[in-house]
Amino acid sequence: MLCLGIESTAHTFGVGIVTDRGKILANIGNVHKSAKGGIHPREAARHHGVIAKETVLCALAKAGVTMNDIDLIAFSMGPGLGPTLRTGATAARALSVFYQVPILGVNHCISHVEIGRLTEGAKDPVTLYVSGGNTQVIAFDAGRYRVFGETLDISVGNCLDVFAREVGIPHPGGPNVEQLAREGKHYIPLPYVVKGMDLSFSGLMTEAVRKHRTGSDLRDLCFSLQETAFAALVEVTERAVAHTEKREVMLTGGVAANKRLREMVGLMAKEHQAKFHVPPIELCKDQGAMIAWTGLLMYKRGVRHKLDQTQVRQRYRTDEVDIVWR
């Protein structure tokens, strides 16, 4: 059984083709790049509309199959940007109707966890999912993926990117901040905000920008910003590990590319004698394979969506999906 998955929550339009055995035959991504960084939702949606057909064809060619071999279409239903989500959903519906194949809407955050479980062999991890749009600590409990901590305002990726843009660090912000942070030596105190299980990064970002305007060294600031934001992330993840007593920790999402964050989460996992997993970076980022794979998991356990149940949901919560396949 073959599933074609479409991802379009933000600036990536991705198409993945996966077998029900979990073999990834193709995983093609097309990223919308804007001149100044950031995402303009309407522009990104237009980009996705233009390259949708080409990306699907490219994925089919890579997998060596045709649309007639596809048994299921899955797409990202949310959370994400409305315009880009709708473009992906429209493409998915068109394919589903034209080729008479069932369609399934998938929760984006959950699919990040599922692709990691597939490729890393993680059975039951506490997952720290950090990207430009999302920041969540997720662990499975009693039929759902529960959120054991999340940001109350902006995501950590957004915090790094906006800081970079405000202080004139060129796009892409996150990786460039990481580079500069390696040369930082002195820790500049910044607001460390952990509220119970939850996090907040907007005050941290504002204060870091303010410190730059008042003359703090940029390399020291990048270093301090990362250290503060990541320490808070790891602390919340650690709480979830202590609370759930799970023996595995997984790091995923685009910010998982950051080496310092990997190191910190890894150290924490070690202290708790937990196994530490990071999927290959192509699978940490947004892509279609994770959507296809999660679609397959759902389909095989009897989940079906009618066409009128495929509206996108910009604020689709991780903990509202019944996880029938676990």
Partner: peptide, 13 residues
Amino acid sequence: SKRYRVSEIDNQL
């Protein structure tokens, strides 16, 4: 002490 965070943050917290 948490080894994952820098000593400044660690001691302060």
